[in-house]
Computed example of a mutant assay.
Amino acid sequence: MAKILVLDDEEKILKLIKNILLLEGHAVTLCCNYDEVDDNKLPWYDLILLDIMMPGTDGFEVCKQIRDKVDCPILFITAKAEEEDLVYGLGLGADDYIKKPFGMEELKSRINAHLRREKRNHSVVIQSGNIRFDLQGMRVMVEDESINLTKGEYQICEFLVKNKGHVFSREQIYEAVFGYDGESNDSTIATHIMNIRNKLSEVGVSPIKTVWGIGYQWES
């Protein structure tokens, strides 16, 4: 199963693509325009289908804005058949294009081909304000400075930033990060949070908020 994002302003096209991809067992997120896209979730998609002719921010501009945020294939869906447009789109970082109108089998085969060939060395990054997470290297950077976190501290930060805005109790954080078979208990979370805050405060950031009586959250 792949996680696929589809952007197209035509409702009929969105429904058609969704039905096809669901039959293939994929998880599908549909958006009519770029304003509906959650940038924080972009790094988790395995493939993005992107219409060129959209009102407001068109597909070319969307591709330019998201290419540095994602490592997955981007496929244009387009009624524009001019070679210069297609060359321009691929030059922006798209991997391929599918011309409208398209058939079910063509869409499936093109998507599956890209998913099979996708062997990039993913260097997924999450950006939260001026705090940058390198998920592959398990590093946290503030501006150009690397923060010296322990493995446990990093895992707590990664869990919170992936779910930023949500409040989690110490028990929930402990189970998510260390699992039920961890060698300590949830009371250690408070100590980890204190150490994380001390290290981040040294570089002028304090993203972790205490919600009294409930737990902690990474502020949006």
Rank of each mutant, 00 (worst) to 15 (best):
Val124Tyr: 06
Ile214Ser: 04
Gly129Ile: 01
Tyr45His: 13
Phe168His: 11
Lys209His: 14
Leu149Ser: 04
Glu171Cys: 02
Asp46Trp: 07
Val37Asp: 01
Arg197Leu: 12
Asp46Val: 10
Lys119Gln: 08
Phe60Cys: 02
Ile48Thr: 12
Cys63Pro: 00
Ile156His: 01
Phe102Ala: 02
Ile131Trp: 08
Asp46Ser: 10
Ile196Phe: 04
Thr191Pro: 07
Glu183Ile: 14
Asp95Cys: 04
Lys151His: 08
Tyr180Gly: 12
His26Tyr: 09
Ser146Asp: 10
Leu86Ile: 10
Val167Asn: 08
Leu75Val: 02
Gly129Thr: 00
Thr150Pro: 11
Glu10Arg: 11
Gly213Phe: 11
Asp39Gly: 06
Ser220Tyr: 15
Asp181Gly: 14
Glu24Thr: 13
Glu11Asn: 00
Leu14Thr: 06
Glu153Ser: 08
Asn195Val: 03
Asp51Glu: 00
Val167Ile: 11
Asn148Met: 02
Ala94Trp: 05
Pro43Leu: 09
Met194Cys: 10
His26Gly: 04
Glu84Ile: 04
Asp35Thr: 13
Val28Asp: 05
Lys108Ser: 06
Leu115Arg: 10
Asp39Pro: 05
Lys41Phe: 05
Val161Thr: 12
Leu30Asp: 09
Val124Ile: 08
Ala176Pro: 04
Asp144Cys: 01
Asp38Leu: 03
Lys18Ser: 13
Val6Asp: 10
Ala94His: 08
Ser128Phe: 03
Glu219Tyr: 14
Leu5Glu: 06
Leu200Asp: 04
Ser128Gln: 06
Asn185Ile: 08
Phe60His: 01
Asp51Cys: 01
Trp218His: 00
Asn185Met: 08
Leu47Cys: 07
Ala190Lys: 15
Gly129Glu: 01
Gly204Val: 12
Met138Thr: 11
Asp68Lys: 08
Val87Leu: 09
Ser206Lys: 09
Gln155His: 12
Ile17Glu: 14
Leu23Thr: 15
Leu86Tyr: 01
Asp71Met: 03
Cys63Thr: 00
Asn198Val: 10
Thr150His: 07
Gly137Glu: 02
Gln127Pro: 05
Ile111Asn: 05
Pro101Arg: 02
Tyr88Ile: 03
Ser169Pro: 08
Asp35Arg: 15
Ile52Lys: 06
Cys32Asn: 13
Leu160Gln: 09
Tyr88Val: 04
Glu183Lys: 15
Asp71Glu: 07
Gln217Asp: 02
Asn130Trp: 13
Ser187Phe: 14
Gly59Phe: 01
Asn163Thr: 14
Gly152Gln: 11
Leu23Asp: 15
Leu21Trp: 01
Pro43Cys: 10
Asp71Arg: 06
Ser109Lys: 04
Asn185Trp: 12
Gly56Cys: 06
Asp186Ala: 14
Ser201Asp: 11
Asp96Gln: 01
Gly89Ile: 04
Lys164Gly: 02
Thr188His: 12
Pro207Val: 13
Phe133Tyr: 13
His166Val: 13
Ala190Gly: 13
Leu7Phe: 12
Gly215Glu: 09
Asp8Met: 05
Glu61Thr: 04
Thr57Phe: 01
